[in-house]
């Protein structure tokens, strides 16, 4: 899952331009991702000039009942 470090974000829109799912919303003062549409392609993370995005690999954990 992509995590946004909002404190680093300059709201430039570079990520919005490359997002193939059109799922990044950018207002005057806020950036957000519609996670249900995001496919974790990571293009936003790589294109961002300010390293705002962080990809967190959520490994499936197998729960074994005790």
């Amino acid at each position: 899952m992509i995590k946004i470090h909002e404190d680093k974000c300059d709201l430039c829109g570079c990520c919005v331009g490359v997002c193939p799912e059109n799922c990044i919303d950018l207002t005057e003062s806020r950036i957000s991702i519609e996670h249900e549409l995001c496919t974790d392609c990571r293009k936003c993370e790589w294109a961002c000039p300010f390293e705002v995005f962080e990809f967190k690999n959520q490994k499936a954990t197998l729960k074994v009942p005790a």
């Binding site: 430039c12 919005v16 331009g17 490359v18 997002c19 193939p20 950018l26 000039p49």
Partner: peptide, 22 residues
């Protein structure tokens, strides 16, 4: 660069990673 108007309407304006300058 962050245009979504075209995409909402059905024009594909997504910029490829090769073409986007960061």
């Amino acid at each position: 660069v962050e245009s979504r108007v075209g995409r909402w309407a059905g024009l594909n304006t997504t910029v490829s990673m090769h073409d986007m300058e960061s």
